[in-house]
């Protein structure tokens, strides 16, 4: 039975000697049922939040939307996205994702290329200097003090610049470059191309698979990161969507503040579309999770690969 599930299904099926017994079917059904429950536990909360954002708001506030949406409308989304701080928070989230990912890629790939060259000046020493940063951290408070000293505390750059420390990604790219045939680069070297030209025109195109993996992981990481907002910023204008959602969920008075700052959004006579604190929370939650879900099917094919490279590297 176990055989069937492990790839090459068709071929093995024809070779199966023993017939399935009732007991086998029961065990299969039971396993599938348990996994079904866990699957529902993983996904149902978001389905529940989603149906509550598109249902009649007067039913939502009295807690009557539990399994199916009723009185479907989308005005929550149009209204929430015009609340004063949300367009800006979305902008911050998008910008830090784009710039942070780009910077991570540059800082993982170019130094990796440099270190892959044997002639690098005191290669072992400098490579160790970089790699050893994986094993220690100064801790939250000293990092905070350093950022303040460098004037990137409470500055948008605090989301981007620390991405230059990516020893793990650097190892991945370096290993990948070293696995490429050296002859490709040598031919360009003989033609007299310098390091930068060789890097951009030969190495980068060949490294696309590994760079794509890193890009996808770092983009999701950037989009999801809100701890740096908590630790290293004060300015409201630096708050990303994640952090705004955190505030809405944790601080009861922020929603009263929204109502005060956006009287027009809350002034609604029709109870079915009237924004309540709860619908604002739920709607922002869906807005925050959708980008991750959109890229998810696309990057699902990367993560086994990403994880395996990591495991092989050790």
């Amino acid at each position: 039975m176990a055989l069937k599930s492990r790839g090459k299904e068709k071929e093995l099926e024809s070779r199966m000697v023993r017939k399935l017994t009732v007991g086998d079917h029961l065990v299969n059904a039971f396993i599938m049922f348990i996994f079904g429950l866990f699957m529902i536990a993983c996904i149902f909360p978001f389905y529940y939040i989603f149906i509550n954002t598109i249902s009649d708001n007067s039913l939502v506030i009295t807690g009557r939307i539990n399994l199916l949406p009723r009185g479907i409308h989308f005005s929550n989304y149009t209204k929430v996205l015009t609340l004063k701080e949300l367009p800006h928070a979305t902008f911050i989230s998008v910008m830090r994702t784009l710039l942070g990912t780009l910077f991570t890629l540059i800082c993982a790939s170019f130094p990796a290329y440099c270190f892959s060259r044997q002639e690098y000046w005191h290669r072992t020493i400098f490579y160790r200097f970089v790699i050893i940063t994986m094993y220690f951290s100064a801790g939250v408070i000293p990092i905070f003090l350093t950022y303040r000293m460098l004037h990137i505390y409470d500055n948008f750059l605090v989301y981007i610049l620390p991405c230059c420390v990516t020893p793990f990604n650097l190892i991945l790219v370096k290993t990948y470059i070293e696995s490429l045939p050296a002859s490709l680069e040598e031919s360009a070297e003989i033609d007299g191309a310098g390091y930068i030209v060789r890097f951009t025109s030969i190495v980068i195109p060949l490294c696309k698979p590994i760079l794509a993996t890193i890009a996808v992981f770092s983009a999701v990481g950037q989009w999801n990161n809100w701890m740096d907002t908590v630790l290293y910023t004060k300015d409201k204008r630096l708050q990303s969507l994640q952090y705004v959602l955190y505030r809405y969920l944790k601080e009861a008075n922020t929603l009263a503040e929204i109502a005060r700052e956006n009287p027009e959004a809350m002034a609604e006579t029709d109870p079915s579309t009237l924004l309540s604190p709860l619908t604002v929370k739920y709607t922002v939650c869906i807005v925050t999770i959708v980008p991750v879900l959109l890229v998810y099917p696309f990057f699902q094919r990367y993560f086994v690969k990403g994880m395996m490279i990591g495991a092989v590297k050790g």
């Binding site: 800082c107 970089v130 220690f136 100064a138 003090l145 230059c164 420390v165």
Partner: peptide, 15 residues
Amino acid sequence: FLVGIFVFSYLPLTG
């Protein structure tokens, strides 16, 4: 890049 590593990983140790 090495300067970046120094600033963001080693410099905080002075804290």
